[in-house]
């Protein structure tokens, strides 16, 4: 271990060490605490400039209710869910199939296909923006969540295929040799060997892709314009323009947008961290 572990019987040192860690953590998360505090203040406190003092009354329920009833956030939320869940499912299916082939079949150009999947993942979004937008217009899905589903499925498949390929390549090859020796067809190998073993990878991948897609902002503003199609990220940016002085509502809306990925992360942290370090290619 490095740094050298603090000995278990050094109670005082351990306590002091944790005190320092929590102190740094409070500074680290101070912006988050500030926004949480603001999200429970009443409009009159905000108007009076009482941002840091004791709240005269608590506006917690009123603010969060207002976000869903006074702003179009409820609709944005639904759009985000309807966009993210199908994208994640499609990506998992496509990348498992492609990852299986790239890891277990030798063919000319294998490495090239693999490199394209990785490389495409790092391209700046702007380099594909205009043609993607035109494609969605031509398909008649521009300004709908279908445009976002198609794009996110395509884009995330690059990262996910790399991820699944590496995972399947690390599985013991005896399993695949045994299956082949018994004359199993590719579909049988996929169903009876690959699928049972890749479940942990799929869990990690699902969380990562959910987070990437839910948090996307660029494509949300490029591919949607109307409130009926906008996901939460584009919606929050829009609210920032409309409610620029109602910081209590804006703060509550920010928290509401942040909650799904954060909650998912806390419940499945092990999978998330394993996935991120295993993939280790995503910015």
């Amino acid at each position: 271990m490095y740094p050298r572990p603090i000995q278990e019987d050094a109670r005082g040192r351990r306590f002091a060490y944790m005190a320092i860690v929590w102190g740094i953590l409070i500074i680290w998360l101070a912006p988050m605490f500030a926004i949480m505090l603001t999200s429970v203040r009443t409009a009159s406190d905000i108007a009076a400039g009482n941002f840091w003092g004791v709240p005269t009354s608590i506006g917690l329920i009123a603010n969060y209710t207002d976000v869903f009833t006074q702003t179009p956030m409820a609709g944005f939320y639904l759009n985000s869910i309807l966009m993210t869940v199908p994208s994640v499912i499609m990506v998992l299916i496509l990348s498992t199939l492609a990852g299986f082939v790239l890891s277990r079949y030798r063919f000319r150009g294998n490495m090239l296909v693999f490199a394209i999947f990785i490389g495409g993942n790092f391209l700046p979004a702007q380099i594909m923006m205009i043609p993607v937008r035109n494609l969605m217009v031509a398909l008649g899905v521009y300004d709908s969540i279908f445009a976002l589903i198609i794009f996110h499925t395509a884009f995330q498949t690059g990262f996910a295929t790399l991820f699944m390929r590496n995972f399947i390549a690390a599985l013991p090859s005896e399993l695949f040799e045994a299956a082949r020796a018994e004359g199993a067809s590719p579909t049988q190998v996929l169903r009876h060997v690959v699928l049972p073993l890749v479940r942990p990878a799929l869990a990690a991948l699902a969380i990562l892709i959910f987070t990437f897609v839910w948090n996307d902002y660029f494509w949300a503003v490029v591919l949607t314009v109307s409130d009926t199609a906008k996901p939460v990220t584009a919606g929050l940016a829009q609210l920032r323009g409309q409610y620029y002085s109602a910081w209590n509502i804006l703060s509550a809306a920010t928290i509401v947008v942040a909650i799904p990925p954060v909650a998912l992360f806390y419940f499945m942290q092990r999978h998330f961290v394993a996935g991120l370090t295993m993939g280790a290619v995503k910015g």
Partner: peptide, 28 residues
């Protein structure tokens, strides 16, 4: 079928990624 299946497996991902991501980038 021993090589056709793998082609069918990889095709959806390769086509979608190739058209939407790679081809779009080239078009730009």
């Amino acid at each position: 079928r021993s090589w056709l299946w793998p082609v069918i497996f990889i095709l959806p991902a390769a086509v979608l990624f190739g058209v939407v991501i790679v081809w779009s980038s080239v078009q730009t």
